[in-house]
Simulated scan of single mutants.
Amino acid sequence: MTGQTPFAAPSELDEKIEETTRFAPKFGPDGLIPAVATDAATGRMLMLAYMNAEALAKTIESGDAWYWSRSRSQLWRKGGTSGHVQRVIEIRTDCDQDAIELVVEQAGPACHTKRKSCFYRAVSADGATLKFQE
């Protein structure tokens, strides 16, 4: 990596962020932006993680999903240890560019519990219990 990011800062935009064609992600005060990974084949949400500018730039550069671990305070490539790599098909951003969606081809399970998705429990109607699902 060259240390340069391929995207603009929101402050560099001349037009409204909702209408611009320039990628200008808005990172939070902690330097992070939430990123959801969705399965390219099914559209199912697989996981939620966070990216800093370096993780986002490495994702764009490499085509593999990179994230920032808030608990370990370090970059990590999804599947670096498990082999369950996320190959990025498309990167999307929301209307005000403060969230990222990675549309991915997921090799193996996305969740560290060995499930396809980290979202494998449904909250009951009374909000008191969880029902496991696949």
Rank of each mutant, 00 (worst) to 15 (best):
E101K: 09
A55N: 08
P109A: 14
L130V: 01
C95H: 10
V123H: 01
I91F: 04
V85K: 13
G108A: 04
G31V: 09
G63V: 07
A57Q: 15
E134P: 02
S69P: 07
E54P: 00
T42V: 11
A99C: 14
D96T: 10
K58Y: 07
P109E: 05
A128C: 08
T2P: 10
M45I: 13
T20G: 09
Q106P: 05
T5R: 12
M1C: 08
A55I: 10
G63H: 08
R70I: 06
P6G: 08
I60Y: 05
S62M: 02
A122H: 08
E19S: 12
A41I: 03
P10T: 08
F132Q: 10
G43D: 09
A8S: 14
H84Y: 10
Y50I: 01
H112K: 14
G83V: 12
V88G: 01
T93H: 15
L102F: 15
Q86H: 11
V103R: 13
K16L: 14
S124Q: 08
K16T: 10
Q106V: 09
F119H: 11
A53Q: 15
P6H: 12
A35T: 13
L48D: 00
A37Y: 02
R92H: 06
A110I: 01
L130A: 07
D96W: 07
Y67L: 11
R87E: 12
D94F: 03
A40L: 06
R22M: 06
T2M: 09
R22S: 10
L75A: 06
R77Q: 15
S124N: 06
G79P: 03
K58N: 10
E19M: 02
D30F: 04
A49E: 02
R87W: 01
Y67S: 12
T81E: 15
L130K: 06
S62I: 00
